[in-house]
């Protein structure tokens, strides 16, 4: 599914202007805790979170996350949205719960990211 289709599925809206609707959302990770996001080893993953602390977009940036879906109607701050904009990370905003968001995306073929343990980094 591409970004636009995911946004429609979740009855959400794309908050970033350069909408990059062609971006393919095929892997996702759902979490509110940032430390767990930081243990994410898989790149090109979409992050589903209800955490709107200013750190979320910064962490997404560091980890090369491709898109962020904010759930539960939790709207990130305007400065977080414009920061994501400059990084080219699109943001979807939905009123749906995290559970329903995961359920709908899973039912539509989005799969969990591979998150192998970080303990033995390659190399």
């Amino acid at each position: 599914m591409n970004l636009h289709e995911v946004s429609r599925l979740l009855e959400g809206s794309i908050l970033t202007e350069s909408r990059r609707e062609d971006i393919e959302i095929d892997r996702a990770y759902a979490v509110d805790l940032l430390s767990d996001v930081l243990a994410l080893t898989d790149e090109r993953t979409t992050l589903i979170t209800g955490n709107i602390s200013p750190q979320v977009v910064r962490v997404a940036d560091i980890l090369n996350v491709i898109a962020i879906i904010f759930v539960r109607g939790k709207r990130p701050s305007d400065s977080a949205i414009s920061y994501a904009e400059t990084l080219g990370i699109p943001i979807i905003w939905t009123k749906k719960t995290m559970f329903e968001t995961c359920g709908l995306m899973y039912a539509n073929g989005v799969r969990p990211c591979k998150n192998r343990p970080m303990a033995a980094p390659e190399g």
């Binding site: 996702a28 990770y29 759902a30 979490v31 589903i48 995290m98 559970f99 329903e100 995961c102 359920g103 709908l104 995306m105 899973y106 039912a107 989005v110 799969r111 969990p112 990211c113 998150n115």
Partner: peptide, 10 residues
């Protein structure tokens, strides 16, 4: 993971 569990439980 949480995403997959939510997906399957849903």
């Amino acid at each position: 993971g949480a995403f997959e569990l939510a997906g399957r439980l849903h």
